[in-house]
Computed example of a mutant assay.
Amino acid sequence: MSIELQRCARGRLRHSYPVAAHDIEVRVLAVNSAEELTAILRAVVVGIREAEPSCRKIVYAVGWNEAQHGTISALATVAAAEAANFRYVVDVDIADAELGLLVAEPAWVTAVDIDLGDVLGS
């Protein structure tokens, strides 16, 4: 098993969505099961959040046209990532693949202030 981390702004995803400077793509290579992938992704998210507190998105890309890691289907891979608290966001095309992007975001990014009585300009 190996894990690759790359800033999205410098990697293969740089033109695929509105990338922020601190977004990080996680690539996990050679896992044996969806359960192992879930455990790895959970641990990686914790490590990235500790090392890079300004990271808004941790991105995990699933290739739709091939089995993941040799044995895990794309849908099982998505389910494994979702079990690690990633959420599916969008499909993108890059030069050599069609990918589904899943993200893990910290609470400070996803928090919403639902004060509907406070309208700007009123």
Rank of each mutant, 00 (worst) to 15 (best):
I3W: 03
I3M: 05
I3G: 02
E4N: 09
E4Y: 12
L5Q: 01
Q6M: 09
R7W: 11
R7A: 06
R10Q: 09
G11H: 08
L13H: 05
L13G: 04
L13C: 09
R14F: 03
H15L: 09
S16Q: 11
S16V: 04
P18T: 00
V19W: 00
A20T: 06
H22I: 00
D23P: 02
V26N: 03
R27L: 06
N32P: 00
E35A: 04
E36V: 02
A39E: 05
V44C: 03
V46D: 07
V46E: 06
G47Y: 01
E50T: 08
A51V: 08
A51N: 10
E52N: 11
P53C: 06
P53I: 05
S54L: 08
S54H: 07
S54K: 09
S54D: 10
I58F: 02
I58E: 00
I58D: 01
I58G: 01
Y60G: 05
Y60V: 05
E66L: 13
E66S: 11
A67V: 08
A67S: 11
A67P: 09
A67I: 05
Q68W: 08
T71I: 04
T71R: 03
I72F: 04
I72E: 02
S73V: 06
A74Y: 11
L75K: 13
L75P: 09
A76S: 13
V78N: 06
A80H: 02
A81H: 04
A84I: 04
N85I: 00
F86V: 02
Y88F: 14
Y88V: 12
V89E: 10
V92H: 10
D93G: 06
D93E: 15
D96E: 15
A97E: 15
L99F: 12
G100I: 11
G100Y: 11
L102R: 10
A104N: 10
E105I: 02
A107N: 09
W108L: 08
A111R: 15
L116T: 10
G117Y: 13
D118Y: 12
D118K: 13
V119D: 05
L120K: 14
L120Y: 11
G121P: 13
S122N: 14
S122L: 13
